[in-house]
Amino acid sequence: MTAVLKVTDLVRHFGGIKAVNNVSFEVAPGELRALIGPNGAGKSTCFNMLMGQLKPTAGKVFLNGEDITGRPPREIWRLGVGRTFQITGTYQSMTVAENVQMALISHNRKLFSVLPRAHRLYREEALDLLETVGMVDQADRACAILAYGDLKRLELAIALANSPRLLLMDEPTAGMAPRERINLMQLTSDIVRDRGVSVLFTEHDMDVVFAHSHHIMVLNRGELIAEGSAAEVRADARVQEVYLGGGTLFAAEDAHA
């Protein structure tokens, strides 16, 4: 099977700094893949290049074999890439359902229509999506009053609106309570399984990463330094040194004592 996402030799410079340096990887269909690394390692830069917010200095990004390098975010979305952000970007002035309807309106290319009433359009589909993320009972609440964890789930529903082949999730559980984190990642795993979507996500919570990803990549100073299963990454000496750090050093010293 061909990869959903294929990245080859991706490079991005900021001034003289190489934020991302020769990064290559593939995401297979139905795969839940994590990208981890210390702050400033280049994770967000990488994500922004995949989604079109940033143009790469060099390298290519392929979606289902099609070259999408340098295309604007809205085109990449239309090709089937959903995205959630570290800081949620929902529409505060709309209800929960309308937020999802907005994405559906866009998907159906009705953005410039001035005739129908928007709040009646695609409402059933929107409610179905909200059902998927367990938000249907809050469909008519104002988005501005939602709890943080609910906003994250809403964002996920929006990202699913155009039946994407690939979901990019930037620190999906940041700022959430431990219980909410587990729920959200469980939900994400279910979606991957039920819909055959691939997910690429960045995350700082190692519990989340090790429990939910099929494959883990570690980025440091803009370069991929390791990848593999949870066990493999955990055992990697360089990963321990630059990222997981602390505990292992500590353990090593304990052993000496």
Binding site: Y91, S93, M94, E98, Q101, F112, V114, P116, R117, A118
Partner: peptide
């Protein structure tokens, strides 16, 4: 209230 207005918002 139409899709265009929603898109604008």
């Amino acid at each position: 209230h139409a899709p265009f207005g929603y898109a604008l918002r």
